[in-house]
Amino acid sequence: MNSPDTPILELRDVTKTYTVKQGLFGKSKPLTALNGISLQLNRSDVLGLVGESGCGKSTMAKILLGLEAPTSGQVLVDGKPIGGENRLELARRIQPIFQDPYSSLNPRKSIEDIIALPLRVHHIGDEASRLKKVRDILDVVGLPSRVLTNYPSQMSGGQRQRVAIARALVMRPEIVICDEPTSALDVSVQSQILNLLGELRREFNLTYLFISHDLAVVEHLATRVAVMYLGQVVEENSVEGMFVQTRHPYSKALLESVLTPEPGLGVPDTHLGMAYPNPIEPPSGCHFHPRCAAVSEICKQQAPRTQLTTYGRIKCHLHDETVQAKLVQA
């Protein structure tokens, strides 16, 4: 059997490449959405996955849900690789919560049908016991059972997101992939949903992969943070480590971009050049170098190695001692 410290979810060197056609008669070019991602999630961890749109976060979610297969590398759940045959088994253990509750609920179905769908697909219980389960989970996410006969269009954004959470949790999964679950909601509703997710994690001992571009939200909920840039994890750290001593220039820029409600501070200068690079033609060397404030010659030529740190790891020449030593010598 698995030892207790086997990570519940592990990605080993996962790479996903798409072929993209440019124009009608253009040549096909490979687009590397994920480039050698390795990550580990321990039971009841919350891993915040941060990065700008286009960095591969959503591709990662799809691979974890078993909706796409990685081009190379492995995804392991409880130490066992996931593959084609155990889709249903995987679905029972990993469930998603999506960003936009207006698009994640089928507008033609009643709330009861929506939440009961996982139970029906997996043939769990009979009609009556399913209804009971649906009622229970509605109660857990803080909705009254009279909404069962409602349709999504009759509910507010926050209520819909609660329904989406109920659907994800009705089969009692162990891992929940939260894909920006609050960014489409109003501020006051956002914190309600965040608090709910926090409570549910404690109550059901859930493990979250929490995808977001907002570090403030991640800090609120996560225990570990991984920063992604152009399909690579450039820094991984515990939350304390990340927010106390951020090392990677990109993580710093992300942190600086968060606008805390402190009047008088003005809008921060992130020093990021504006353009997010085209993933079809990634920059040479360190992918981040065109936008980096601390860029040096070596960054343009050589991709940085992954360095282990006290709390996690980092991919940056600035923190590679051998590289720095060489620079000092030269």
């Binding site: 700008e52 749109s53 571009h213 907002d214 570090l215 820029a253 992300l254 600086e256 971009s257 968060v258 606008l259 809008v267 921060p268 200068d269 992130t270 990021l272 504006m274």
Partner: peptide, 8 residues
């Protein structure tokens, strides 16, 4: 927009 772009 992303937070980074928002700040800019």
């Amino acid at each position: 927009l992303d937070v980074t772009i928002q700040a800019q």
